[in-house]
Each structure stands twice: as C-alpha cells, then as structure tokens.
Lab assay of single mutants.
Amino acid sequence: ELREAFRLYDKEGNGYISTDVMREILAELDETLSSEDLDAMIDEIDADGSGTVDFEEFMGVMT
C-alpha cells in the first residue's frame, strides 16, 4: 500500500520524489504545520541531503 502511494508521487518512475513534493504531502497531511516545521521535517527525512526522498525514506515517514 505504501509503495502504491509512493508511485503516485513518483510520476516519472525514477525511484524518488523531490523534497518539494514531500513537503506538499506533509502539508496536506497536517495543515497546521508551519513552514519552519516543514523545513525541519524535510531535513530529517532527507538525511543524506540529496534533495530527494527515496522509498525507504518515504516509508520511514509514513510508518
């Protein structure tokens, strides 16, 4: 189920989504998050600083 959700956002099928897209997902899930909260969450999610979120990083957030 998580893989299907990931595929919805990984429109190009390249195995990752951008941190911008991940930020939008988080904002949709919790509309009360401030910009600073979102920045901090993205920094934590994208631990390797690649600017992308792969499936493993995505799973870590969603579980």
Score class of each variant (00 low, 15 high):
residue 45 I to H: 03
residue 59 M to F: 13
residue 45 I to Q: 02
residue 6 F to R: 00
residue 41 M to L: 12
residue 25 I to D: 00
residue 26 L to H: 00
residue 55 F to E: 06
residue 9 Y to N: 06
residue 53 V to S: 01
residue 59 M to V: 13
residue 37 D to T: 10
residue 6 F to M: 02
residue 27 A to C: 08
residue 9 Y to E: 06
residue 31 E to N: 14
residue 5 A to T: 14
residue 46 D to I: 04
residue 19 T to Q: 03
residue 24 E to C: 15
residue 12 E to H: 08
residue 8 L to A: 14
residue 13 G to D: 09
residue 43 D to A: 15
residue 57 E to F: 08
residue 2 L to V: 06
residue 44 E to L: 14
residue 40 A to C: 11
residue 2 L to R: 02
residue 13 G to P: 01
residue 40 A to S: 10
residue 58 F to V: 02
residue 8 L to T: 12
residue 16 Y to C: 04
residue 2 L to C: 15
residue 40 A to F: 10
residue 54 D to K: 10
residue 21 V to D: 12
residue 33 L to N: 01
residue 29 L to A: 07
residue 37 D to K: 10
residue 62 M to S: 02
residue 2 L to Q: 04
residue 61 V to G: 07
residue 9 Y to S: 04
residue 3 R to E: 15
residue 29 L to F: 11
residue 54 D to Q: 10
residue 12 E to V: 07
residue 53 V to H: 01
residue 19 T to M: 11
residue 44 E to Q: 13
residue 31 E to S: 14
residue 46 D to T: 05
residue 20 D to Y: 05
residue 43 D to H: 14
residue 39 D to R: 06
residue 15 G to S: 02
residue 32 T to V: 03
residue 32 T to G: 09
residue 31 E to W: 12
residue 58 F to N: 00
residue 37 D to R: 10
residue 58 F to H: 00
residue 12 E to A: 09
residue 55 F to S: 02
residue 47 A to E: 08
residue 47 A to G: 11
residue 23 R to M: 03
residue 2 L to I: 09
residue 18 S to Y: 06
residue 15 G to L: 03
residue 24 E to W: 11
residue 30 D to Q: 07
residue 15 G to K: 03
residue 31 E to T: 14
residue 46 D to L: 04
residue 35 S to H: 11
residue 56 E to H: 10
residue 27 A to V: 08
residue 22 M to R: 00
residue 16 Y to G: 01
residue 1 E to S: 14
residue 48 D to F: 07
residue 12 E to Y: 06
residue 25 I to S: 00
residue 63 T to W: 04
residue 28 E to P: 01
residue 46 D to Y: 03
residue 4 E to Y: 01
residue 48 D to I: 07
residue 27 A to K: 13
residue 50 S to Y: 05
residue 11 K to L: 12
residue 48 D to R: 05
residue 51 G to M: 04
residue 1 E to N: 14
residue 57 E to A: 15
residue 20 D to F: 07
residue 46 D to Q: 04
residue 35 S to P: 12
residue 30 D to S: 07
residue 23 R to Q: 01
residue 30 D to Y: 15
residue 35 S to K: 14
residue 57 E to K: 15
residue 34 S to A: 07
residue 19 T to A: 06
residue 59 M to G: 03
residue 60 G to C: 14
residue 59 M to D: 02
residue 13 G to V: 06
residue 12 E to Q: 08
residue 28 E to L: 15
residue 59 M to E: 08
residue 30 D to A: 07
residue 6 F to V: 02
residue 19 T to S: 06
residue 21 V to I: 12
residue 21 V to W: 03
residue 14 N to S: 09
residue 13 G to N: 11
residue 41 M to V: 06
residue 19 T to R: 07
residue 17 I to M: 02
residue 62 M to W: 08
residue 42 I to H: 01
residue 38 L to T: 02
residue 55 F to M: 05
residue 40 A to P: 01
residue 14 N to K: 12
residue 45 I to K: 01
residue 63 T to G: 10
residue 3 R to P: 04
residue 54 D to V: 08
residue 38 L to D: 00
residue 39 D to L: 06
residue 9 Y to T: 02
residue 48 D to Q: 08
residue 37 D to A: 11
residue 62 M to L: 09
residue 63 T to M: 11
residue 4 E to V: 03
residue 49 G to T: 05
residue 8 L to D: 09
residue 34 S to G: 06
residue 47 A to S: 12
residue 58 F to I: 03
residue 41 M to C: 07
residue 15 G to I: 03
residue 61 V to P: 02
residue 48 D to A: 07
residue 39 D to S: 07
residue 17 I to F: 03
residue 17 I to C: 02
residue 13 G to S: 06
residue 11 K to A: 09
residue 59 M to I: 14
residue 40 A to N: 10
residue 26 L to E: 00
residue 26 L to V: 03
residue 38 L to I: 13
residue 34 S to D: 06
residue 62 M to K: 02
residue 5 A to P: 03
residue 41 M to I: 10
residue 45 I to A: 11
residue 23 R to G: 02
residue 20 D to A: 12
residue 31 E to D: 11
residue 22 M to D: 01
residue 29 L to W: 13
residue 46 D to E: 03
residue 29 L to G: 04
residue 26 L to Y: 02
residue 7 R to E: 15
residue 4 E to L: 05
residue 16 Y to V: 08
residue 9 Y to C: 12
residue 46 D to F: 05
residue 42 I to P: 01
residue 57 E to L: 12
residue 23 R to T: 01
residue 41 M to K: 07
residue 56 E to N: 11
residue 55 F to I: 05
residue 33 L to A: 05
residue 42 I to D: 00
residue 26 L to S: 00
residue 28 E to Y: 11
residue 4 E to Q: 05
residue 45 I to G: 02
residue 44 E to D: 10
residue 24 E to A: 14
residue 30 D to H: 13
residue 45 I to Y: 04
residue 31 E to V: 12
residue 54 D to H: 11
residue 59 M to Q: 09
residue 56 E to C: 11
